[in-house]
Design a binder for these strands. Sequence first.
DNA 1: AAGCTAGGTTCCCTTTCGGAACGTGTCAAG
DNA 2: CTTGACACGTTCCGAAAGGGAACCTAGCTT
Lengths: 166, 166
Amino acid sequence: MKWTELCDETCPVARSLSVVGDRWTLLILRDAFRGVRRFEQFQTNLGVTRHVLVERLRRLEAAGVLRREVYQERPLRHEYRLTERGKELSPVLVLLGDWGGRHLPREDGTRLTYAFRDTGEAIAPALADARTGRLVDPRNMTARIEPPEAPPETLAAMPAGDAGSA
Amino acid sequence: MKWTELCDETCPVARSLSVVGDRWTLLILRDAFRGVRRFEQFQTNLGVTRHVLVERLRRLEAAGVLRREVYQERPLRHEYRLTERGKELSPVLVLLGDWGGRHLPREDGTRLTYAFRDTGEAIAPALADARTGRLVDPRNMTARIEPPEAPPETLAAMPAGDAGSA
DNA sequence: AAGCTAGGTTCCCTTTCGGAACGTGTCAAG
DNA sequence: CTTGACACGTTCCGAAAGGGAACCTAGCTT
């Protein structure tokens, strides 16, 4: 299987990985969430080679995850900003970081913690259902493939909630 | 920066990616969550080449994400099972799949949905705090690097560590 | 002019990957 | 007793991707 064929896969995980599933892309996004926007800064922070960085930024732009925006006219310069679609990847990075923090500790013991900005309360990241707020135990979860936007009576009794518009 | 140096990074996202941050590893884990355990089945499902698959399985085993277990003695055979540590990656894959499902739809319109096993209620995956169950809006979240978790006495007795600057 | 900055390009060489064949230990069939 | 099948690798080769470093472009500064 060629890597580029993943975008046609039935599994949405595979399709996601066709965009973010390489060595550098998620690190680029991590930096983007930290506020990095400029080419040079990505390059310096990550230590990725320049042509790889160009290629990844182009791919993320093509996927609608980043947007290229002019920030200076006279020598024409662009910066890369997260789109809404890109920002929605934030929870993935948070959970990934949390996992790494718990299972791959640093030698020196420093660790990254998350907290609510408003209350300062520490966050223990977990998966939940957006509508009910109920926490999701993976063992109590099923996944299944559904046909195109058919109104399946099995689940259609739900109120039309805003599914993840952020 | 060499890829293998990532495991020393301050950022736990980078450390996680030193384990799962390549093209095939997350797909292997996705299959593992679906119940795949045998080499041949991973290989057939994914279409990954055999030596790459061997290398990834070894890495995941070394990282404590998969465990190699004998399932047959006479021609000695092993299978690969998720450890607890591995199972804790499940939320990452769920969120990643959800993102892909929402933003990278298939041509034919089929989509993957999640539901609670007990109630059958659909799940809209989101990030929440495990302790309070409160949903986390990424904009209302801060991250910061903390010194080693240590009893206050020990902490006071130690020379002030630096909080790595990335 | 020379140098600086920011964002790429180009070149070369090494590593990794994809594809396919081969190896190993055991059983079952012919 | 040979052949084939099965499951899990291993080996080999050519192609692709990646790392490292120099170079290019456009405008501004000294």
